[in-house]
Design a protein around this nucleic acid. Structure first.
Length: 1149
RNA sequence: UGACUUAUAGCUUAACGGUGAGAGCAGUUGCCUUAUACGCAAAAGGUUAUUGGUUCGAAUCCAAUUAAGUCAACCA
């Protein structure tokens, strides 16, 4: 005999989660779900490795829910979905954690602690929170293979990375170059962008800024039109210490520049300067009134001074002291420096102009420059796209060593490079009086004198400074020493991603991005503006760059495997002899990390020793190479790799766009000329309730453990998926989870509970034959049609990676179709009458709904789904599978879907809702029967529809009769509205006019149109217009205004309620009220459902008549054997019926 | 600073360019006749961030602005 459906006291999602989880673990449900699909088409998924160095947060739960539900869904679709877990184990955060823990800084490494011990510590710490991660993985129901994960620090993994690097090296994609990087002279170290993004690194500081004048060379003067005398190119800098290293001036191609005649405010020497026209206002008062006060004199004076030629100097010899004083007062204190625009040109006209070096010294002579960068052509004006007219002069002082833009543009234009500041941050020898001085106060010197100020002073004296002032700006500082950083050239290794840029863009277009805008927008733009990938990191815990160089750097080796390295180790030991590599001769290398790899010396073809370059590589390379490294390709698993590349699907946060998504793509294209993934879902961020970013500092982080323990994984997952599209950022509100729990799971649970209660009574176990649809009542056909429509929607949404749509559709079905309509209307079928056809239909129908729902929700709510599935299947044994996650996803049955039936039922729901709202409006309870509702209809179809659902509406709203007002009834007035969609396309500008005409139509006209074409503008001939014919589809017809009735409408549906309560109706209403009161008393008294009772009622003239008339009905409903009226009852309950009070005595028999 | 994303009722959100902007929650009101008060129903709640534009017609398309967020950068 079949068992019973389990019944419960109340819904407890967390305990369902625990119970199902234990079951899964015991039965190896996950492993089985993969094994069962052996031989089926694989669906390839890549797990983006998290770092177990930090605690998992709620934002991890959302992306993992997304990954999990797709994988579960695809498994249910019949694919085999292997999910290898992974751990990201290298990188700065780990180092920082270790340093904090040990209380050391980077400088201590190699001194207070050996690199060996340091890395040992890192290795320990890396899996610090692995237990927590494993725990959350289990509890949230994320199915991923944690027994056999890939771990990025393992030798096998690194060996594949080396293989990748050597492949790139062979293809010529790996090269060494200088890059300008943030560098902290105080700490003596380069800084990562991560370090630069620490809070507090950017500070507002006041620095000496200088607008300086570069004198155009005699040779180049000729290039400038209308020119005599000297001219100076003006450039602005906030770092005057970079001026000795200046090698170029950069202008913008299309920026307008002017040649201006003026005087130097410091030396009062007349000068001609060049700067951007847009920036004149920064240096001159453009409001100077030529006519006013000394206005005309200004220019006169200027011309006079210039006519005196270069020799003219504003001094005692040529001008009186009085004149000088006046000049200073007027022109300088008031900032009204006289000026006159002489000529105007575009940036491109300036290109190639040569200028004299600003601060020549021993260290930056032409010979020195040629020595460092042979063939360099410095001291020229060049073009650069980064030049703006936001501030400065529109001419950018370019010192290639000290700015990334400068370097790039300098290299392009062959300016050479000068680095006149050493790594301690002081000027090198040979920079005259500045040699040996720190460019910023890096040593906390007592009485430090800012060298920048001295440089400015020198330039002022030399007539080479036009404006010097303190300038406040935001400048990055070293987070460790608090000292300003500088940009400094450091050696680095690069991957030439730009070589495959076009191919990456091309292949990106084949990737299915969710949302699409991330792929074309953020990612697409990133690809368009791609620069070569700087791989180098000067750190300790990471994948070492497997490149060895001879001392002179002339010869290099890039190692691609452990075997290759070991053989090179032995070779070097043989050739070089002595102690070389002696620790690595027997077993070879055992750990591919620092410091061991750095111990190893290799040998070049000509017998020179080679040492490894000290760099580690970017951790993003680690994760970007996971498609290969997770299989230890190509050293093992060649077949497994082939089967699993590229991925069908990956998903991570949108913050990975330029991280993992990029590195995967770059390596896929570089190594295999292929995409690395076909579909990528980038989910948004999880913010707190009020839209703020979650951070420990604000204390608004949500603990996923707490959430899951309290509300269960299913409610959490369901909330995360259905509340907002995964790619929109989610404002996480715990109240939302409660709502999901109550509303969705609560309703579904209650529906199951209802089913179980009665099915157990009747012993329903789905043993009877499946009743053909045609033989089932209409309402059963309806809910099954609805169910199959739902299956269709869910499948489409899931196939389209739109789980939010799927989840919302399921919610809608459960709440407004299944629970609040089907079950509500069918309740009696489950408990009234014998166990025969109609009842079996009801059970089969409800069972099928519940069972199907368990399958549909399985991807999103895996625990509850399995619970529901197993509870049902344990009794019916319809499936052989022990878990819902092993079953195939349901397929929508077209023949069950009946659109018309669904429409009809919607009509019934709408009509009922309208009637209820009318009842509410006039304050008549549902318990009070009403005689009639009238529904005007527009067409015959609607008549049919209403007739078919008439009984449902009547029962639901307690109305005796539905009157259909057919369209030939004069009683109703039809109202027509233009269908803008169809007409708008046809009519265009005449739309408004047509809409106004249509609204005026009367019944006759509307009927005419409904029957055939109608000419809207009968006078078209007169006006010379086109004839406009409209037909039924161009109208939206509705009705309203039924005199003498309470009317409500929704769309085309109108109901008119007859609210007259006749004496007869009143009696019936009273009887029903009475039944209700007695039922309450039964319940309060704790009687059993089947207990018979005797009822005594105190006499009441009005009510007594009603009760007597409906005595049979009343007694049947309340299971009373007798109903008596007594003159007085003292010990009974007082009840109120329609404002009359009677006493009743209810006695259990 | 740049690229990108987002902005609809108090909150969470929906609406192929087609016209009284639709739900749920909270609040209000009314309901427990055998699954659900962790429930049901009803009424109310909106200048669709702002300003322009395109269009017969804009929440929807375009531009600018504002605010928030992400990533990249911070550069004279």
């Amino acid at each position: 005999m079949a068992g019973k459906y389990k019944e419960y006291n109340q819904l407890n999602l967390p305990s369902i989660g625990e119970e199902i989880l234990a079951k899964w673990n015991q039965a190896h449900a996950f492993e089985k779900s993969v094994e069962l699909r052996e031989g089926e088409t694989p669906f390839v998924f890549y797990e983006g490795p998290p770092s177990a160095n930090g605690m998992p947060g709620i934002h991890h739960v959302i992306s993992r829910t997304l990954k999990d539900l797709v994988c579960r869904y695809k498994t249910m679709q019949g694919f085999q979905v292997k999910r290898k877990g992974g751990w990201d184990t290298h990188g700065l955060p780990i180092e920082l954690g270790v340093e904090k823990e040990l209380g050391i800084t980077k400088e201590d490494i190699g001194k207070k602690i050996s690199v060996e011990d340091y890395n040992k510590k890192c290795r320990e710490v890396v899996m610090r929170f692995k237990d927590k991660w494993d725990d959350i993985t289990q509890k949230m129901g994320y199915w991923v293979d944690l027994n056999n994960p890939y771990i990025t620090f393992e030798n096998n993994y690194i060996e594949t990375l080396w293989w990748c690097l050597s492949e790139l090296y062979k293809k010529g994609y790996l090269y060494e170059s200088v890059s300008i990087q943030p560098y902290s002279p105080a700490a003596g170290t380069g800084l990562s962008s991560h370090e630069l993004n620490q809070p507090g690194t950017y500070k507002d500081v006041k620095d000496t800024s200088a607008t300086v004048m570069f004198k155009v060379s005699q040779k180049s003067k000729l290039k400038i039109k209308n020119f005599d005398g000297d001219a100076f190119l003006m450039a602005w800098t906030t770092t005057p210490w970079t001026l000795p290293s200046n090698l170029g001036l950069t202008v913008g191609l299309n920026i307008d520049y002017v040649l201006v005649r003026t005087i130097n405010p410091y030396t009062l020497i007349p000068v001609q300067i060049i700067l951007a026209k847009a920036l004149l206002g920064k240096y001159f008062d453009l409001q100077v009134n030529i006519e006013g006060d000394a206005g005309s004199n200004i220019n006169q004076g200027l011309d006079a001074w210039f006519s005196a030629g270069d020799a003219f100097i504003f001094n005692e010899a040529t001008k009186t002291a009085e004149e000088k004083k006046k000049f200073e007062e007027i022109y300088i204190k008031r900032k009204n420096i006289p000026f006159k625009i002489i000529d105007e040109f575009k940036g491109k006209d300036l290109e190639g102009i040569e200028y004299e070096q600003l601060l020549p010294s021993e260290a930056n002579t032409s010979e020195k420059i040629q020595e460092i960068t042979p063939g360099a052509q410095p001291f020229r004006v060049i073009l650069g796209d980064f030049v703006t007219t936001e501030d400065g002069t529109g001419i950018v002082h370019t010192a290639p060593a000290f700015g990334a833009d400068d370097y790039r543009v300098g290299k392009k234009n062959n300016l050479g490079i000068l680095t006149l500041v050493d790594k301690q941050g002081k000027f090198v020898d040979g920079v005259g009086e500045f040699s040996g001085r720190y460019v910023k106060d890096y040593k906390d010197e007592k009485g430090y004198i800012d060298v920048n100020v001295d440089i400015a002073v020198k330039l002022k004296l030399e007539n080479r400074a036009f404006k010097v002032e303190k300038y406040e700006h935001n400048y990055p500082h070293c987070w460790r020493t608090d000292k300003p950083i500088i940009y400094y050239p450091l050696d680095a290794w690069f991957i030439k991603t730009t070589a495959v840029k076009d191919r990456m863009i091309e292949l990106n277009k084949t990737i299915n991005w969710k949302p699409a805008t991330t792929g074309s927008g953020r990612f697409g733009n990133w690809l368009e503006n791609m620069v070569d990938w700087n791989l180098s990191r000067s750190r300790f815990w990471g994948t070492p760059l497997p490149i060895w160089k001879t001392e002179d750097g002339e010869q290099q080796k890039c190692i691609g495997s452990i075997e290759e390295l070991n053989s090179e180790i032995r070779k070097a030991a043989e050739v070089l002899g002595g102690e070389t590599n002696k620790h690595y001769l027997h077993e070879g290398i055992l750990d591919l990390h620092k410091p061991y790899v750095d111990d190893i010396v290799l040998v070049s073809a000509d017998g020179q020793p080679m040492k490894r370059v000290p760099d580690l590589i970017d951790v993003w390379f680690d994760s970007g190479a996971m498609p290969y490294a997770q299989h230890h390709f190509p050293f093992e698993n060649k077949e497994a790799f082939k089967q699993s590349f590229p991925a069908d699907f990956i998903a991570e946060g949108v913050d990975q766009t330029r991280g993992w998504f990029y590195t995967l793509h770059a390596l896929g294209v570089l190594l295999f000329d292929s995409v690395a993934y076909k579909t990528v879902v980038s989910n948004g961020l999880v913010l707190d309730k009020s839209g703020n970013k979650m951070s420990k500092r604000l204390g608004n982080v949500v603990d996923p453990f707490e959430t899951i323990n309290k509300y269960g994984a299913d409610a959490t997952r369901w909330y995360l998926i259905t509340n907002a599209s995964p790619w929109d950022s989610l404002k996480f509100d715990i109240g939302g989870i409660q709502e999901v729990q109550r509303k969705f799971f609560g309703t579904l649970y209650n529906t199951y509970q209802f089913f179980a209660l009665y099915a157990n009574v009747d012993g329903f176990a789905f043993k009877e034959n499946y009743v053909p649809l045609k033989e089932r009542p209409e309402i059963d056909q309806w809910i099954l049609s609805s169910l199959n429509t739902l299956i269709k929607t869910v499948q489409q949404s899931m196939d389209d990676y739109e789980p939010t749509q799927a989840g919302r559709a399921i919610e809608e079905f459960v709440d407004s179709h299944l629970s609040n309509w089907y079950v509500r209307l069918c309740r009696r079928r489950f408990w009234k009458g014998e166990y025969e056809q109609d009842k079996i239909c009801a059970y089969q129908t409800l069972y099928e709904c519940l069972e199907t729902l368990s399958l549909l929700i399985a991807p999103i709510a895996p625990f509850f789904a399995d619970w529901l599935f197993v509870n049902l299947n344990d009794v019916s044994a319809r499936f052989k599978n022990e878990s819902v996650h092993h079953v195939l996803f349901p397929k929508a049955k077209k023949e069950v879907i009946n659109a018309d039936l669904e429409k009809r039922m919607q009509l019934a729901q709408d009509a009922s809702s309208l009637i209820l709202s009318l009842r509410k409006k006039v304050n008549i309870k549902v318990r009070q029967p009403l005689q009639k509702v009238s529904i005007p209809v527009i067409d015959k179809e609607m008549v049919e529809r209403i007739k078919l659902v008439e009984d449902i509406i009547k029962a639901e709203t307690n109305i005796k009769e539905i009157e259909i007002l057919a369209d030939d009834n004069n009683f109703i007035r039809k109202k027509a509205k233009a269908n803008f969609k169809t007409l708008g396309k046809k009519l265009g500008a005449k739309m408004k006019w047509a809409a106004d005409e249509i609204v005026k139509f009367d019944n006759t006209t509307i009927d005419k149109i409904l029957e055939g074409n109608y000419l809207l503008n009968s006078d078209y001939g007169l006006k010379g217009e086109e004839a406009i014919y409209i037909s039924a589809e161009d109208l939206e017809v509705s009705t309203d205004e039924i005199p003498g009735f309470e009317v409500a409408n929704k769309g085309a549906l109108t109901v008119a309620l007859d609210i007259v309560i006749s004496a007869e109706l009143k009696k019936e209403g009273e009887a029903r009220e009475f039944v209700n009161r007695i039922q309450n008393i039964r319940k309060e008294s704790g009687f059993n459902l089947t207990d018979r009772i005797i009822v005594k009622v105190s006499a009441n003239e009005g009510l007594q008549a009603s009760f007597n008339e409906y005595k049979t009905y009343i007694c049947a409903e309340i299971l009373a054997d007798s109903l008596e009226f007594l003159p007085e009852i003292n010990d009974g309950n007082a009840i109120e019926i329609n404002e009359s009070i009677v006493n009743v005595n209810v006695i259990k028999k």
